[in-house]
Design a binder for these strands. Structure first.
Lengths: 224, 224
DNA sequence: ATAAATAATTAGACACACCTAATTTTATTT
DNA sequence: AAATAAAATTAGGTGTGTCTAATTATTTAT
């Protein structure tokens, strides 16, 4: 792409690293080409090509049996991209006034801007935020990243209350649906009923709003 | 490149449009493939390829005799890129505290971020600045762009005073030299002497600093 | 254990944007 | 006007990242 010196990586490489990183966070035992293709919405054949390239660059190790795994160098790069992505999301929401559902796509472009000092300067400018607007922790300059105790809404027991801490899906469709339901990071939810037939559930949003949501919905909301 | 829908253009296309726009501002009568290759630091053969593509997309017209010329659509796109570039430069300098000489390269990446509302939101956030940190006017949302009466330092008469309004060269080497000399946008200069031998000149910077600068330097500083 | 389904991989192609080298066209000298 | 220099163009090739279709491995189900 553009004047990529020694330690820099292309947009595509960075996207693959981020994808692998994200899948690994979801506790996958094995990261397969198919899973990566799914995450990136592309073709397994393309993934295989890139896995070879990333292996040569020592950013990952890959083995048919064990799947793909980030090396230390790969983790560092992936975290750097994630850090920039989440910082830019904070910027877009807090400083430019974008909506919750609009920031992801723009941050996906901004995360690939290359400059050594950029992440740190942005971090400082934003007041060193710990979480992005979707509730995901922002990796720190030293590589540390906060972990939150969280489960999906699906795993909450009937009658229990909880608070939304993050979302697993950042698609516009999902975020707009959340907005429509009046659900955001910090919203209190109470699980009222589960329908065994289709896994859907009735939840109470805030004080009195009661809604029925699908199993897919329950899987995409993280609570703590 | 990335999910480029209907009206969007690739990084490369945008860079060519910006290059053509910049050359046209310098008052060139004819914009030749060679001139564009020079501006983009690439090969005339590559330029020809792209000129064909841009012509097909109706962003320019090209004719061996008349050279390349932006269509209305091309002007709009080029101005949009320039607008984003200059707004991001203001952001990098004012909000993130980057130096004068560091912002150009980063803005060159940021100018290609695609989002309909981005330029306007950034503009508002920055307080609708009229000029970027190098003194160049920022195109407005309506496509209007301020013009400044400016000449190169070279054209100033001996004994006259003037004020730096912009720089023609945004290379790091040049900007760092300016910094070293204590010259920035707004700095008052007085032309003391011109050496006919090599075109160099002695100027007074601010109150009392006297320095001798080359002809090349004089061509790169714009004053008004 | 064998058949059927799914996953991984290879082969071959394509679009993009660039390159070098050779050729043609145009402009400049003499 | 002919010779020379410079610019424009064509031809052919490269690297990156993608794709489809075909093939090979591996699981899963029967």
């Amino acid at each position: 792409m553009y004047h990529l010196s020694n330690g820099m990586h292309t947009f595509s490489e960075e996207n693959y690293l981020r994808a692998i990183y994200r899948i690994s966070l979801e506790g996958a035992t094995k990261i397969s080409p198919t899973a990566i293709a799914e995450e990136l919405q592309n073709n397994p054949a393309s993934v295989i090509d890139m896995l070879k390239k990333l292996t040569e660059k020592k950013l990952i190790s890959y083995d048919k049996k064990k799947g793909a795994k980030l090396t230390d160098k790969g983790i560092k790069t992936a975290m750097d991209v994630v850090r920039k992505h989440r910082l830019w999301e904070v910027f877009l929401l807090e400083k430019l006034g974008y909506g919750w559902d609009e920031i992801h796509d723009i941050a996906e472009q901004l995360e690939h801007i290359h400059n050594d000092e950029l992440a740190d300067r942005l971090d400082k400018f934003l007041g060193f935020p710990d979480y992005d607007p979707h509730g995901d922790p922002i990796p720190k300059a030293n590589g540390k990243i906060a972990t939150i105790h969280k489960t999906t809404l699906l795993e909450v027991e009937i009658g229990s209350s909880c608070q939304v801490v993050a979302v697993k899906d950042t698609s516009t469709a999902f975020l707009q649906y959340l907005e429509k339901l009046g659900i955001g990071i910090g919203t209190r939810l109470k699980l009222l009923e589960k329908i065994s037939f289709d896994g859907s559930m009735t939840i109470q949003v805030g004080k009195d709003n009661k809604v029925n949501v699908s199993k897919k919905f329950g899987e995409s909301v993280l609570v703590g």
